[in-house]
Design a protein around this nucleic acid. Structure first.
Lengths: 245, 245
DNA sequence: TGTACATCAGTGAACGCGCGTTCACTGATGTAC
DNA sequence: TGTACATCAGTGAACGCGCGTTCACTGATGTAC
């Protein structure tokens, strides 16, 4: 046994006290560093300062640990999206874009969770608890889309919220997975991922017929007010992409 | 040595003849089956019916094999996108959507290539040849976006083609990676990935001010003609999402 | 056309390594009396 | 309050396994003369 390991045990005694949690944290660190594929059960045990056999007291196998991480990831994801949505305050469009930014922030700040949830190859549909957690997270986006859809200007068709939610999800995931990932495979971009996604969502919403210029925070929401000069929303006058030609 | 292995060697003689190619094919099969992470050098050798040491005559290590696959993947990707674009015939919007469908088709039909290119964690930027191949593929989308941008109706701002291309790329990648992947992690969807992406792109283009109803194949392109009833494009009257409310 | 020889593309044995997993075990903790 | 005992959460040794990699080797091929 190495000196360091003895040392660690001397500090904490024979029982770890909180090994399950420590293993989850260790695995998160390893996944962030090397990807879900490159993380091993033995490595996690080592990082937690415990023998290779100890994790079996808490997880059936490596896969169960990975599922636990994905599960927890979906829960945190849901809670962050919910907070960002803030029940549509101060207005639906503003809140909606805050959700988009929260999505990217999560992918960037929690690469290990994001990896386990979306890129580990873990078949989410095969685990009912995991699938439920995944759906709860998605439902935040879906509920927001629902509210947005209800805003469709009179006379224009009302888009199905499910489709809108799937569109937004695929945009956010696409940007996150290509340009906002935490590892070496992140691709360079001539702008920030947030800007890219924000413009993308704005153009998309405009395509649905929504007025996308920001209105003062306090204004009543329905009916939509006519476009006015935007302010501090990342959308310069003339549209989300800059100057008119 | 196993009977089967002797047999195989009896059939082909001491020299394989085309081992490099056989290894690439074997690796493609393995990646499609188990993901880029779960593929091993030894496994590829076994599948090619050759000793574990043989691959070293053709690839420095496992990583070089993976890079070769990604490289070839980008080349095939580029060629399929180019064919789909068909230099913008019969009209820019139609051709542009064909590119979107080609993107998804590639992700679905060549999951191993797609995985190596976009999900293996391979740092594309670190390998100049690979980066160049990746850029050539992206440039097909970019050139198409360029042509599309030039179509902006008079008086409306002309969006930067680079941004449009990045938007389209992120949409296609998002849909492909979530809903059109070749492995068990594919998520279920209440419609086809192609339909989802096509609607998404159409709404986006409309948000940019482009008329997105299809016009007859032979019409001259600029200036844009007014919207008319769509036909056989997957976009029902009333917009990409169906009936008006 | 035949032959000697260089080169190439394989073999198979061997190595060290780390992983996953099992097992009998043991130290620590909590609790019934 | 003390003690006996059950239970829990660790240990460490051991196992089989497959991988990556190296090495001296050898069979096949191509070519110079």
């Amino acid at each position: 046994m190495s000196w360091r390991k003895e040392q660690r045990r001397a500090e904490r005694g024979y029982h770890h006290g909180n090994l399950k949690e420590a293993l989850l944290q260790a695995a998160l660190g390893l996944i962030a560093e090397k990807g879900a594929a490159g993380f091993t059960f033995a490595d996690a045990a080592r990082m937690a300062g415990v023998s290779a056999a100890a994790p079996y007291r808490h997880f059936r196998d490596r896969d169960e640990l990975l599922s636990s991480i994905a599960q927890r990831g979906f829960e945190q994801f849901e809670s962050r999206l919910t907070a960002a949505w803030d029940d549509g305050r101060p207005d639906t469009v503003t809140a909606f874009e805050r959700v988009g930014r929260a999505y990217l922030a999560f992918a960037r700040e929690e690469p290990a969770f994001y990896n386990a949830m979306f890129e580990s190859g873990l078949p989410v549909d095969a685990n009912p608890a995991l699938q439920a957690a995944s759906e709860r997270a998605f439902n935040v986006i879906r509920a927001a889309a629902e509210r947005l859809a209800a805003l469709a200007p009179p006379g224009t068709p009302r888009p199905p919220a499910m489709m809108m939610a799937l569109h937004i999800w695929s945009m956010a995931h696409g940007v996150a997975s290509l340009f906002s990932r935490g590892d070496a495979a992140r691709r360079k971009l001539p702008m920030s991922p947030d800007e890219l996604l924000e413009a993308e969502v704005l153009i998309y919403l405009r395509g649905l017929g929504f007025p996308t210029d920001r209105r003062p925070a306090k204004s009543a929401e329905p009916p939509p007010v006519p476009p006015e000069a935007s302010s501090g929303s990342g959308v310069p006058p003339g549209g989300p992409w800059g100057k008119p030609k």
